[in-house]
Amino acid sequence: MVYFFASSQEGRNVFSIMLYILLMGAWSPGAPPAEQAEGSGALPQGATSQLRRSLLPSRGKESVAAGPREVFTAVEQGLAAGNVEPVSTHLDSRVYMQLRGSEGGYHSSTQAYYILSAFLKARKPASVAFTTYGETDGAPYATGAASFITRGMREDLQIYVALHLSGDRWVITHLNMY
């Protein structure tokens, strides 16, 4: 059977199909479960989305039982270390983000991950600290200040992070740094 797959035209076709799956099929994104909990329509629960989530190591695992404070702490530590992974774990499927130097807008969690990565890559964190925690109508938020060094110049920013409960997870819905 190995010989068959290896030497025949059919076998090579099957190989090509497997290549296609490896590169495209199984890892194509589907909506995360959180979005389904909100009642939005047309969201698959197929194996691919589960597989995707399992392949993104920093997403969907630690945040299941984390409270708001833990989430804020993770964000604070992640930004202070210039590491986006702790933050991306808690991103909602759609996040409003406004970072200095760019217009604000709603982005998917994937986009938010890469935008934040690019933002932190261009800046060296000097200090990040939340100073105020609050909650209104069950929506916790935190504000604070952050300093980054960019091209030798110090940049002081204000941070605002807001969460809401999606299923049993606290997820970030707003992240502003300017």
């Binding site: 296609y20 495209m24 199984a26 994104p29 691919t48 994937t110």
Partner: peptide
């Protein structure tokens, strides 16, 4: 495999719409 790949195309289209502004 063909059906799985077809779903992959659907997922890539979804990504184009949902992961973009």
């Amino acid at each position: 495999l063909v059906l799985l790949l077809a779903r992959g195309v659907g997922a890539s289209v979804r990504s184009i719409l949902y992961d973009s502004t």
